[in-house]
Amino acid sequence: MQDPCQLVRKSFGDPVAEDMRFVVKSVVGEENFIDMTPNMSNNYCCGGGGGYLQSGYTEARHQYGKMKFDQIKNTGATYCIAPCHNCHSQIHDLNDHFDGGYHTVHLWTLICLSLGCLGENERAYLGPDLAEVGL
């Protein structure tokens, strides 16, 4: 899971990062959650913030994001949860650019999936392994 700079380091700090972990672990199961290193307030920015996505400096944005990409790949996880819009766009794009083979999902998607109420048209970011679950 990405700790969004805006939410964690720049606003509510480690307590909100702990809250998010509580939610994520409840949703995916504790044994399925793998943290990145470093994380929480120490986490690296994904490279989507500060206007980067609109700035036109695409090559730099990818180079910047390589640090995040490697962090995600090092977890070995197949899904990265991005609970922020910019993070979601950037991490999704990093996967396309560097051919990462992971899926980038919003937290709301997984919450509803685990509650058994995720509709058919609300699954754009799920991989084939989860796309049909609970339909």
Partner: peptide, 11 residues
């Protein structure tokens, strides 16, 4: 413009 203003440095 390539700094994302993420504030990790000041942190």
């Amino acid at each position: 413009w390539m700094c994302s203003l993420c504030m990790r440095c000041i942190y």
